[in-house]
């Protein structure tokens, strides 16, 4: 909690910075693009991460078309084969092609992550700005809810929620969103709080805008950049959380192709040396999370130079 406070302090300082240093700059899309080029050039890792991100998104879109085999088709004659020219990532215990399954799983994993992050953005973001803007009882109740969620170890709470709501993919999305709620709510609250009496908000109030209208048209657009950075930073966590839940047998049911459950299926064969069943989906998961973390860091550099590490 103390770290969160200091984080909001620095953003407060950062948000007031651009006003202090007005400089003539080319505006619009072109400027944004050159800024992106500058940041990517300065930090080649960020450029690489954005390229990798594009590749993952493309795989999610076209994976099922690219897969050389049917991800669910079993072939017991070709079971447990190590990687070869025919099966690049080998085959699993019932002869399914692991390369095809890893490709096809990209879409499901990415969908779970994007859906849960979008859900928590709407819940946490809206509730957070309302709490920060109105203050008082709204703030106290929302803060208490966040504190209660934070009182649980997050993965354990996610397990409990999925167990209670029922064992489905939708509930994994909901559980991942709920455990991330405090983070989004607090950032949105802090950002809305420092702006509640900013000049442009007072101007909007004086010209007769309703409170709800100010919240949505004045406050929300202003905190969007910070929230976007937060979304990309938590994407990696969301994917890990979902894969962890399916690894212990929650949400995704076999034979669906999903990275977490594929690692779980391969786990039984690690001891006897069939490493490829668990390795490739695990690597895919790792690369995706790594990429999201780097993209998050890159976006933060792009939008909020004050918080560069």
């Amino acid at each position: 909690m103390k770290t969160l406070d200091t984080a909001s302090d620095t953003t407060g300082a950062a948000s007031s910075l651009p006003a202090a240093a007005p400089r003539q700059r080319p505006s619009g899309f072109k400027a944004g693009l050159s800024h992106l080029g500058h940041v990517a050039g300065e930090n080649p890792v960020t450029g690489f991460a954005f390229a990798l991100f594009a590749l993952i998104v493309l795989t999610a879109l076209f994976g099922p078309m690219l897969a050389p085999y049917d991800p669910l088709a079993t072939d017991t004659a070709a079971a447990l084969q190590p990687p070869s020219a025919l099966h690049w990532f080998g085959t699993d215990q019932v002869g399914r092609d692991i390369f095809s399954r890893v490709l096809v799983a990209t879409r499901l994993d990415l969908t779970i992550a994007v859906a849960s992050v979008a859900l928590v953005f709407v819940m946490g973001g809206l509730v957070g700005i309302a709490a920060g803007y109105y203050g008082g009882w709204t703030d106290r109740i929302v803060g208490r809810i966040s504190d209660t969620i934070m009182a649980f170890p997050l993965f354990v709470l996610a397990m409990g929620i999925v167990a209670a709501l029922g064992n489905t993919v939708t509930n994994i999305v909901i559980a991942t969103a709920i455990v991330n709620f405090p983070l989004y709510q607090r950032i949105a609250r802090a950002e809305a709080n420092v702006r509640r009496n900013a000049g442009f908000v007072q101007a909007a109030r004086l010209t007769g805008n309703s409170e709800a209208r100010i919240l949505l048209t004045q406050i929300l657009p202003n905190i969007m950049p910070i929230m976007m950075v937060q979304m990309s930073l938590t994407m990696g966590y969301a994917i890990l959380n979902a894969a962890g839940l399916s690894f212990i047998g929650l949400g995704v049911t076999p034979p669906t192709a999903e990275w977490g459950i594929m690692v779980a299926e391969g786990a039984a064969f690690i001891i006897s040396g069939e490493w490829w069943i668990a390795l490739f989906p695990g690597l895919a998961l790792m690369i995706a999370v790594f990429c999201f973390n780097l993209v998050g860091d890159g976006l933060r550099d792009l939008i909020d130079p004050q918080r560069r590490t």
């Binding site: 990696g236 391969g266 790792m286 790594f290």
Partner: peptide, 22 residues
């Protein structure tokens, strides 16, 4: 630190089992 936050903990565990046991 970057690897630590990116590695799925169940995957690292399995990798260790494969390398150090098998």
């Amino acid at each position: 630190t970057t690897a630590g936050v990116s590695l799925p903990v169940f995957f690292t565990g399995l990798l260790f089992v494969y390398v150090f046991y098998f």
